[in-house]
Design a protein around this nucleic acid. Structure first.
Lengths: 235, 235
DNA sequence: AATGGTATACTACCATGGCAGCGTGTCAAC
DNA sequence: GTTGACACGCTGCCATGGTAGTATACCATT
């Protein structure tokens, strides 16, 4: 059962990590679902060693909780994790964009504006997945322009908890249009070369997630583990 | 050969990670030294599996470089890594201290001032190791007071590259006294409840590492791997 | 002497086996 | 009905064996 895409360049453990991470963030694997080395290695067609390494990394990122001799479970979406991720992201990414503005060149500025146009198209077609992808690409473009690649890696690492929320929030009415407007404000400020304006526009944009969490009424449900073992409820 | 401290509560892989990390940061393992799974598992008295997991985590933190089928080498102290770590730390820790001031209570304030007194004593005795330990404790106290534990974990993770430099810099004349003065300025501002003053004092303190790097004339030597394999040069 | 081909030693990577620890179900004793 | 003891099954953890891939050393060829 080789569900994993054939890729000899990357270690199996990394491929497993990416796959399971995607399944958790997208919601395919619900909170508190049980993941065992044996089950995953069987499902993905690899041995238990790379699976184990992937699970350890997932636990370091806070996406799963490993309890020795008991089991491994998908971590619930805790408000604390989201708030903390927001804190980290806001302070780092707002610092990034300042340097990005200073080092901005015409080529990447053009890419940013192209991205915006595609976003507006995705909004018109209600294409959630495409919008998600473009959203990611926009922020990554700014990060790369700043030159702080390692910092961006940290942000991405912390960001996963927010991404779990975002995957739900995009279904909210008019949400994508609102975000696109914020993106536009950011890129406009960047185009003007106004560092402070860009930073504050980004800050405002990033704080959107807080109000989103409140709107969704995300509670701390499922914070503790289930009393009885339950298997993954995948379709 | 069980060099590892007996600790059944922690996974072996974590213990190996902590041990090797300490050896790299302290300089016991010099840049470009070769670390192989077999050699380490032999030296530490554990099997290759936990060693391998530790090396993977070390590579994720940027302390070693793993080249598949070739070898694992201690990463050189690159200026880029230090600068990037400084960037991350400054922006996160300066944000932390603001919340720390707001939530400060008398008990921790007392601990901070106690710590300062011990620092002055360590300076008088030229006790580098003790000072290093107190320095760590001071920053950790502030971080815990802020309540942002996850953020502090990120800072600690990024900080290791600076720590490699710090282990050398403490030997510089009057360096510890200078740092103690900066620590005092920070704690004074915290005691006064002045968030902005505390943040700027901390920022000034953190930027000390940059001038230190310049003073040491740290170059990018050893950036590329040696042409011929060389074994670890441990004593 | 310079070069090309090959054997070999060593590496990180993955697969698999064994094990201690924990949860749970069963059943006897009260 | 309640409680306690015990055995079983499952889990993650660690040890070990096998393998593909790389760099080096060696030697034949030119």
């Amino acid at each position: 059962m080789a569900i994993l895409p054939a890729n000899k360049q990357l270690r199996l453990a990394v491929q497993v990590f990416e796959t399971v991470k995607e399944e958790i963030v997208s919601g395919a694997l619900p909170p508190n679902a049980q993941l065992s080395e044996a089950e995953l290695s069987d499902r993905l067609g690899v041995s238990r060693t790379p699976v184990r390494e992937a699970l350890i990394k997932l636990s370091e990122d806070g996406l799963v909780r490993i309890i020795p001799q008991v089991g491994t479970f998908v971590a619930p979406i805790s408000i604390d994790s989201v708030n903390e991720a927001q804190f980290i992201r806001e302070h780092l990414e707002c610092a990034l964009i300042v340097d990005a503005v200073r080092r901005m060149d015409k080529a990447t500025l053009r890419l940013l504006q192209d991205n915006l146009e595609q976003q507006e198209r995705a909004v018109r077609y209600d294409d959630w997945d495409k919008f998600y992808e473009l959203d990611e690409a926009l922020h990554t473009l700014l990060a790369k322009a700043s030159g702080h690649l390692q910092t961006w890696r940290i942000v991405q690492q912390s960001k996963v908890h927010m991404d779990r929320v975002r995957h739900v929030s995009f279904r909210m009415p008019d949400h994508m249009a609102k975000l696109t407007g914020q993106h536009k404000a950011i890129v406009d400020a960047v185009a003007q070369g106004d560092e402070v304006k860009a930073r504050e526009a980004l800050r405002c944009h990033l704080r959107e997630i807080i109000t989103t969490v409140e709107k969704l009424g995300l509670s701390e449900t499922g914070q503790d583990l289930p009393p009885s073992r339950r298997r993954s409820a995948r379709s």
